[in-house]
Nucleic acid binder design. Structure first.
Lengths: 167, 167
DNA sequence: GCTACATCGTTAGTCGGACGAACGCAACAG
DNA sequence: CTGTTGCGTTCGTCCGACTAACGATGTAGC
């Protein structure tokens, strides 16, 4: 009777308490933190009138130079279906330029503008601050640990990818 | 010209490469891993005809004993709107029993059945295996580190919760 | 005992993000 | 010239998190 009957008769305050078994599960921790993180980033970026995809695209353009929409899709992990809208928004704000590729008339060449670069710098600042808030309880060393661990996990799972790539 | 012009003219294979700046962001790592993790768990659990909410509810019942639907909602983080469906499914399979509370006729008292306990044990096994797969590239010590770091983060953010609780 | 308010279970619906299907167009290989 | 492949785009689907509202019931103030 030691293993079973763990609870069965406890007038506990088991009202608001989440079971340890649940709390410890890495999958649940990831889900929870991802949700929190997403909200934080979304709200933070919304205050500068941006979304996380904007940042992804701009950063990709800055680091690897201009590219077609399909290329950007692969680099950022955004579905090409959704890339259209993102680029529309970015173009409306004058952050990127979309021009037909003379060498391949199927493609659009996307280029980041000077204004886009400025905006990107701003977004980088914003994201840095938001991540400070996100990782507040961790020391710099611990933050590195976390990033390192997650990176290894993600790399492992994106390699012999049994699923369509999400990154 | 050392700081700028990072790319601007690179015939790189920047086709499939995701910028470091993106890869390093904890928020993105969390998002990515959460997505992978969710899929893995969902598919794994689907093979035993279960969903993750089922596990959450059963585990909660096992650890803290019977409770009303609202109580379960608070314990597991499932919205009470969605709890109805979950309990319907569990009840259909005979894993829980839903009876009106004689002391408070607004409430239903949810109790786990013997079959429910068996099922929970099974799910625990399944989840253990899935987590082994999820955390495959990490040593046991590293897995503990990860869980520890994430737990601290989540606890911090769920405390003076600026948002409605997701846990 | 009556009134005002809070809680419970439930239904329905919104919202956003990830993803698939299909189309017209252009390139390219044979 | 023909079949195949990649590109950009539109539209639609699926799912999970979340809100709104309602009837039924409990509870507290007076």
């Amino acid at each position: 009777m030691s293993s079973r009957a763990e609870a069965a008769d406890m007038p506990y305050d088991g009202e608001t308490q989440t079971p340890e078994r649940l709390r410890r599960r890495a999958s649940r921790l990831l889900s929870g933190m991802s949700a929190r993180s997403d909200r934080l980033m979304n709200e933070g970026l919304a205050q500068v009138d941006a979304r996380k995809w904007h940042y992804a695209v701009l950063a990709s353009l800055q680091e690897y130079g201009p590219g077609s929409q399909a290329t950007l899709s692969r680099r950022t992990g955004i579905y090409r279906s959704d890339m259209v809208g993102v680029l529309n928004e970015l173009a409306e704000h004058g952050l990127v330029e979309r021009m037909p590729d003379p060498d391949d008339r199927r493609r659009n060449v996307i280029t980041i503008t000077a204004q886009g670069r400025r905006h990107l710098r701003r977004l980088d600042k914003v994201l840095d601050d938001l991540h400070d808030e996100l990782l507040a309880p961790l020391t710099p060393a611990e933050r590195d640990q976390l990033v390192h661990l997650l990176t290894r996990l993600l790399d492992h799972h994106t390699q012999q990818a049994p699923h369509p790539p999400t990154s």
